[in-house]
Design a protein around this nucleic acid. Sequence first.
DNA 1: AAGTGTTGAGCAATCGTTTTACCAATGCTA
DNA 2: TAGCATTGGTAAAACGATTGCTCAACACTT
Lengths: 334, 334
Amino acid sequence: MVTITDIANRAGVSPSVVSRIVNGDKKLRVSTATRARVQAIIEETGYKPNVAARSLRSSETGLLALVVHDITNPVYSEIVAGAQAGASEFDKIILVGEADSLGANVSKIESLIAGGGVDGLILQGAGTELDKAIEHAVSRKIPLVFLQSGDINIAPVLRMDDLLAGKMATKYLIDHGHKNIGVISTKRNLQFSEARLDGWKQALVEASLPISESAIAAANPNYESGYHAAKELFDQRPDITAILVSNAMSAVGALAYLNDAGKRVPEDVSVIGINDVNLAEFVRPALTVVKMPLRTMGLEAVRMICSGKTSSNKKLEILDQAPLLVERSSVSKR
Amino acid sequence: MVTITDIANRAGVSPSVVSRIVNGDKKLRVSTATRARVQAIIEETGYKPNVAARSLRSSETGLLALVVHDITNPVYSEIVAGAQAGASEFDKIILVGEADSLGANVSKIESLIAGGGVDGLILQGAGTELDKAIEHAVSRKIPLVFLQSGDINIAPVLRMDDLLAGKMATKYLIDHGHKNIGVISTKRNLQFSEARLDGWKQALVEASLPISESAIAAANPNYESGYHAAKELFDQRPDITAILVSNAMSAVGALAYLNDAGKRVPEDVSVIGINDVNLAEFVRPALTVVKMPLRTMGLEAVRMICSGKTSSNKKLEILDQAPLLVERSSVSKR
DNA sequence: AAGTGTTGAGCAATCGTTTTACCAATGCTA
DNA sequence: TAGCATTGGTAAAACGATTGCTCAACACTT
């Protein structure tokens, strides 16, 4: 492999000069002549600095780890996309991990973090699997941000306005004349899910509608779980005419159940989801949803990490960008 | 940070001993007493070797880069999952990149590869964006595998039995009495897509059914494109009673179009997809598909990389594991 | 008793960059 | 012309781990 010394030798300069040229050193003092000569040689040889050596010296790796709960969930893909956009602002690369699958390679991830292999860590839906990794990150002072839920005493938690989202969605159903409104919340009692549920409650209260525990079901964020939660809900409460589903994948599952149960959407039952994904537009009936700024959340997380806002600012941060109601065909007047 | 020297000092041994203990050196000769002492100190201090230093010395990073065409596509998530499973066999971590989004950070990815930041490279649906990265990988002799399509002169190409899949699916439609069978192929003229199309053709030929160009449409692997391709197809050929859709996301899009066009599935039109995803089961009607061994492909790619089969063996490799027909509700007898 | 093996461990070079400190040469000021 | 600043560059010490080589001590063999 061609090293910085090779370049230096061929150019008849010392490695330091090459290094400065490559890195665009601020207080760089090198004549335009040598600079051109060196750059030509770099071009010609295709020299690229060895990343290991560089990060050994500078203790920066250019890698940011983002651990999400489930890669296959399109909702999380949005977060990843946002993070990637942020990463390119700061010239970093996002390393995507999956919390569930981590079981197998969790120790490898831990070593990576503990060994200074990443410049920052973004954790979405962190369960206890990652406790050790978190510990290492903290002791190594690696910038850390939680997304949607996490322990505020350890690192900042970034959230979207989930309360507002739940409220908006529910209000929309109420405005369409619904009075018996069920909700399918997200399991695991996650903080953000709780907030969405609170939004539902607040909207009902403000409309002087009763809140009943029997109108609440819970699902994991996948199709199947949404299907079963919907079944459970309607078995208990056949009188429900509209449901709010706290996440997109469960919403699609719920739609499937309603179809199988012979309930037409939206004629018999209206459905509104939280989180928008491409799929919502192409499922039939197309899902009306409250679109959350997932992308922005991913982006903002990276920005916090890279601009050093994580250590100073240990608190719950709620994104300014408001949820957006996207009307499609799954809700009707009653 | 606690380094190997710190450990060595506290244990009263030299760093080499610590290194050998940590790495389980084969020809390791260290007394059980010192070993225990050192290990206790490692435990106590939480020492983890610095990954940059380690990879500088050993020129191995423990990272494998997997670049897929589109992270949000659940089909590719399967590949990623398989690769991750393979990675944990070899104690490596998968770094997932996205070819499309690469536009922005492509140069960073290039540097990573060129700088020896990864131990191997798996490319799915590689377009020209990555040519430079490929070049670097080759010149650095970084193991490289193409998935589904790629230049066989550069590295091995791993494929599934796409021809068989196309044939099986089409035969299934034929067996159900269909004679006018359309196909929505995948754009970009990718090699695997071509093979699926050939399968369609072969099945028709074997059944002495005519092959007509007007029965062929093409879509990108996403919902929207599938929707439009279906529209195009049926505008041209309203007589078609069954379609084969070459990828799952397009199939869902096609389903949406058929619904909007007032064609009932499967009563008026039967649909069969290639590739299975969870969604196929929860969309209504549930999609009948030919399930491809995507997971196995991801797994096998990693195995090839990590066992050094990539340099010797530059050829097209087709996975043994056969496609599997999964019957659901989108195909009916005619 | 001399020779031969084995065990346990240390020394020091090395991987490729970055960066601090330093220096020589030149130009400028007063 | 002495003094000083600027320009353009070099030397060498890190960064932290790995590993080939060396070596002392002891145990066996013959």
